[in-house]
Design a protein around this nucleic acid. Structure first.
Lengths: 341, 341
DNA sequence: AAATTTCTGATTTACGTACATCAGAAATCG
DNA sequence: CGATTTCTGATGTACGTAAATCAGAAATTT
């Protein structure tokens, strides 16, 4: 059996109350006594039984998710996963609140973050727009000892405790290699559709993509990036225009959301044009397009994993506990038509 | 707050003791009373607080892992992950025992399984060799109400509670498409290295691979399968012989373990021969080979995830609880040199 | 040295559940 | 109808920790 507080008390020759004061960092213990107790804790290797502690405390974890509004499927899926998590609240002792802010809107995000100051929260998770103001607002929460986790898109140079999302540079590089290898040794143009360069995940995907393209596939030329703002209709019109503007386009990389517009644009020029298409985010639209051959590969991050991981990490941080790093690594999923879940 | 046993007792108009008898299926309750209590439980939506129950019970989960011996990296990694899990035992209230049996040895596996009968276990996890005798032994454990989980390789038609592993047919199909697309429209032979057709995962990978190759890449011909028995030295000699036997080989698919032999064989004919190589299992050897260009893609199953998932599932089953199905789906990882973790 | 302040110990209750004991009520049997 | 047998209630203890209260000891101040 593992040692309990009683064992510490006996080993240190103090009472249970003193042990409790040391463990929970309450005042009223002389330095020498405190050190004696800490020595005993280390010596017999005591580890707090978190389940019992939570039971005794009646612990709940109030958590806030700040998510962008917008009708693209990915954010829809993300919201839905957070909602799923609320259904498990009573089991997991969480109390999850969802705040919605307009996408790519720095001041709205800052206002939402600042409104959380002073609240007794076990954690805040946000899809970050990468701006200094947001970073500052996050740092304010962190300085209040509130665990903060960025979700999907990270913040540069902030003190957030954790990032629950994929490595977007690696994602961009992977997209480039898939596209390059699938195109064999062909020569031609590649068009890239992004959401907004205001979010770090899109910037990083583009960075990785460009790097590998330039270094390893010199026969493929990148056209100027299209900014679709994750909006399906806007994406459709941008891609249509690009495709009719240049007949040399043989590949498409969509690194943001709003893919149902892109899919429509590609379908409109099929089967006359031969295009190899790699996109991000598995949704009902991209799944169908992968199945029918409109798309060749989908890179994906599992929103459910991200949400569950974010919650686990916030709870652990709130309890001052560690996490299994490997378990919280969010993986880049690569889907071909053969390995769809 | 969620309802407790006290609330049930009040709602049903019975005593705490009676509620307890109903909840824990102990005798001494009249049918009508039992139904009254069950109605109250449903009505107020009581859910047992598992943490409190485990605390009261002093619950521990004795678990057995049955793993094949053998010096290939994958099994080595799997054992290491189980070992990691033993280090978390005190937190997770598990008591993990590891049994090792010779690989592909049906009677040894059956003996190990049968030796577990009558023991009070919270679960048994095994890397299954797919044979009727093994299935029967597993079914005997299941009939003793011991949760059984297959790991990495599944059993046909058995009553095991769960399979913690990837979809191997999908893995084979994916390998075929990657190889096919990477080879562009080239014509030539493909050699396939397997471990043993006695395990279902290898059979299924081959099945998926062959199906997609035949249907979608008619210019690529499959050579007879080489059986390396997951042994590096044997794999090396088989592949070397195949490569020197036919100059038309342009692609290699290794669906089992023992890849350090395969890598050595491929390196021996480089750079004269141009080969596209897809293998399974990310190990230090395959990782290095992916980085240096010897291998083009690695399909992987994360042994750590499989082990942790297996443990979560066994604990849940032992408690008669459900699992988050999506969380326990083991994913097929596809690694190119750009997205290595 | 007395008075005060600061520590420390002993004890108790609580969290939600499991489980055992014992007494009394209800049902069944002879 | 009394004697069993079968149910049910009341009560208490336990799991490991948190947190509160109160009394007494030690240290500090005056």
């Amino acid at each position: 059996m593992r040692p309990t507080v009683h064992d510490i008390a006996a080993a240190a020759g103090v009472s249970l109350a003193t042990v409790d004061r040391v463990l929970n960092q309450r005042p009223g213990v002389r330095l020498v006594t405190r050190e004696k107790v800490e020595a005993a804790i280390n010596e017999i290797g005591y580890i707090r039984d978190v389940a019992a502690a939570n039971l005794a405390k009646g612990r709940v974890y109030p958590i806030v998710f700040i998510l962008p509004t917008g009708d693209n499927s990915f954010m829809h899926g993300l919201r839905s996963e957070v909602h799923q998590a609320t259904l498990r609240s009573s089991f997991e002792r969480t109390e999850i609140r969802i705040l919605e802010v307009p996408p790519f809107d720095v001041s709205a995000l800052v206002a939402a973050l600042d409104a959380l100051q002073g609240q007794d929260l076990a954690g805040v998770a946000l899809v970050a727009t990468d701006a200094p103001e947001v970073r500052a607002a996050v740092d304010r929460l962190v300085s209040e000892r509130i665990p903060v986790v960025t979700l999907v898109s990270d913040l540069t140079d902030s003190t957030r405790h954790h990032y629950a999302g994929i490595d977007n540079i690696a994602a961009g590089r992977t997209a480039a290699r898939l596209l390059g290898r699938f195109l064999g040794g062909q020569e031609g143009d590649i068009t890239v559709l992004a959401g907004s360069m205001l979010v770090r995940d899109h910037r990083e995907r583009l960075e990785g993509f460009s790097a590998v393209m330039a270094a390893e596939f010199p026969k493929l030329r990148l056209l100027p990036v299209l900014e679709g703002r994750d909006d399906p209709e806007r994406a459709r019109s941008l891609v249509s225009k690009a495709l009719s503007g240049s007949t040399k386009i043989i590949g498409v990389y969509s690194l943001g959301a709003g893919n149902r517009g892109l899919i429509a644009a590609v379908k409109a020029v099929r089967p006359e044009r031969e295009l190899t298409v790699v996109v991000h985010e598995l949704t009902q639209h991209t799944r169908a397009a992968l199945m029918d051959g409109t798309i060749d590969a989908v890179l994906n991050q599992d929103a459910g994993h991200e949400v569950r991981s974010a919650i686990r990490v916030m709870k652990a941080k709130a309890d001052g506990q560690g996490v299994i790093a490997d378990q919280e690594r969010i993986r880049l999923d690569i889907f071909l038509k053969d390995n769809l879940p």
